[in-house]
Nucleic acid binder design. Structure first.
Length: 474
DNA sequence: CGCTTTTGACCGGCGC
DNA sequence: GCGCCGGTCAAAAGCG
């Protein structure tokens, strides 16, 4: 296992992608490359079912992200060989060799799967390039569109980056879908390369097209930005400005004036907001110097037992473990906000969230709010949103431990989540299946979301915490 | 004394 | 241009 995974900022990703591989051997479990930072995970009793589940999860995540399974299996092999060198019996040697062969075969099989996915991706990418070229020619010859209305400008960059036509034909929309599908796949492939080549591995040639300014964006990671790598600079600029303003709002029923998210906050203002008898308090993170993360706390006008906390920005400092949960959750939500804004990725993500059978509130529909100046995702953790919140929440009273898989995504302000039909590729089907399997388990879905976000955020040197509060975001 | 909170002033965006 | 409103600043007050 890579030592870099021990980086505190990547605790969550490590917790998911590096679940201790276990193999049965002569009726005994072999624990391969167990890491100290998994101690927290091991605190809870691990029964056989969980072991199997962890293993399955690991494979799923590996498929999903095309991660370092190879490393893991090689690592497993190394341990087996190491054990053999210690002088086991002849019978054990044979069994170990058999196990080794089995692992190698599995490794080969997974590699083949990855190759197939890459082949499909390449074919799709080529097709996309042709369509894009055709589209570009049409744009040059076509009439110049009138200036897009303001509301449209708010939602457009998130609706279909790259196709800035107000009257959009289905074909154009379909092209956008394919483009975003490619972007999403591209993102995953980048992650794959990064993981397989090491954290400091060579970046793809497309990565080199990134503007250095991307590094200055506090709220989201570079890799998220890559999703819009094919848009022209102007649209990118607009999109980036929206991304910077992306917010994650958390609704929670609590009597305390502020939810405990593990961070230290300094209050810098309080205002009476229109339409709400309760004042709105403004806080900024005081854990790090010049940390850009801010949050607003206000009680709901309709139900004052509900506390609405809105996070903005991403921490630029190391977070304590108690703060990581919230930070990663909001960061994941912000990432979902961003990725979900893209036509294909709403199929990827929201089909899992809104259609997953594990979610009792799948009937909830994200709504468009043109009143919201910034794209905001609302995570509803109130009792009204879900009845199983209490049974899943852990920790001491007032310890805010959201379980993202049960988050009630009721509002995506500034975005339009439509019921547009999608034509998911087989790859996306695979990802959907894997993700659905993961979201079925409340224990891991939270970690998964944080992990994916952490992976996305890990490429940014400043993204040492993997999320904000936030948006936070990244 | 140092840090946090309070609170009125200020600023910029937006709609009319 | 004006007023409204959300967000921020900064001096004063409070607190340990």
């Amino acid at each position: 296992m890579e030592a870099s995974y021990k980086d505190d900022s990547n605790y969550n990703v490590a917790a998911v992608t590096c679940f201790t591989p276990m193999m049965s051997f002569n009726g005994k479990r072999l624990v391969v490359d167990e890491m100290d930072f998994l101690a927290e995970k091991k605190e809870s009793a691990v029964d056989d079912h969980e072991v199997v589940h962890q293993m399955e999860l690991h494979v799923d995540v590996g498929k999903l992200l095309n991660t370092g399974l190879d490393l893991l299996t090689k690592s497993s092999a190394r341990n087996i060989m190491s054990t053999m060198e210690e002088g086991p019996s002849e019978e054990n040697k044979l069994a170990m060799l058999a196990e080794l062969n089995h692992v190698s075969a599995e490794n080969q099989r997974l590699r083949n799967m990855v190759d197939q996915v890459n082949d499909k991706y390449n074919a799709l990418y080529n097709h996309l390039m042709k369509l894009k070229e055709k589209e570009h020619n049409n744009e040059i010859n076509g009439a110049i569109e009138e200036k897009v209305e303001k509301d449209d400008m708010i939602t457009r960059p998130f609706l279909d980056i790259g196709v800035a036509k107000k009257e959009e034909t289905w074909q154009q929309y379909s092209k956008g879908k394919q483009q975003e599908s490619k972007s999403m796949i591209d993102l995953m492939e980048c992650k794959t390369r990064k993981i397989c080549n090491g954290r400091d591995g060579a970046k793809s040639t497309r990565d080199k097209h990134e503007s250095p300014d991307d590094k200055a964006i506090p709220g989201f990671s570079n890799d998220v930005m890559k999703l819009s790598s094919f848009v022209d600079a102007e649209q990118t600029s607009e999109t980036m400005s929206m991304i910077k303003k992306a917010r994650v709002s958390v609704r929670a029923t609590t009597d305390s004036p502020m939810i405990s998210d593990g961070c230290q906050w300094r209050k810098y203002g309080q205002k009476m907001a229109k339409g709400n008898p309760c004042p709105r308090a403004y806080y900024r993170c005081s854990m790090g110097t010049a940390c850009p993360v801010r949050k607003q706390v206000q009680r709901c006008a309709e139900d004052q037992s509900v506390l609405i906390t809105t996070y903005e920005g991403q921490h630029n400092h190391i977070l304590p473990p108690t703060a990581k949960t919230m930070a990663c959750t909001t960061s994941a939500a912000a990432s979902m906000l961003l990725s979900g804004s893209m036509p294909s990725s709403d199929a990827l993500i929201h089909s899992n969230i809104l259609q997953s059978a594990t979610l009792p509130f799948s009937q909830n529909q994200a709504t468009l709010s043109t009143a919201a100046p910034f794209p905001t995702i609302t995570l509803d953790l109130t009792e009204n949103a879900t009845n199983n919140t209490s049974q899943l929440s852990q920790g001491p009273p007032h310890e805010f431990m959201p379980a993202p898989n049960i988050l009630n995504l009721t509002k995506i302000s500034g975005l339009q989540y439509g019921s547009q039909g999608t034509n998911p590729t087989s790859f996306i089907d695979t990802v959907n299946a894997a993700t659905a399997a993961l979201t079925a388990d409340p224990k891991f879905s939270a970690a998964l979301m944080a992990a994916v976000t952490s992976i996305i955020g890990s490429s940014h040197p400043n993204n040492i915490n993997g999320g904000s509060g936030d948006p936070t975001l990244k």
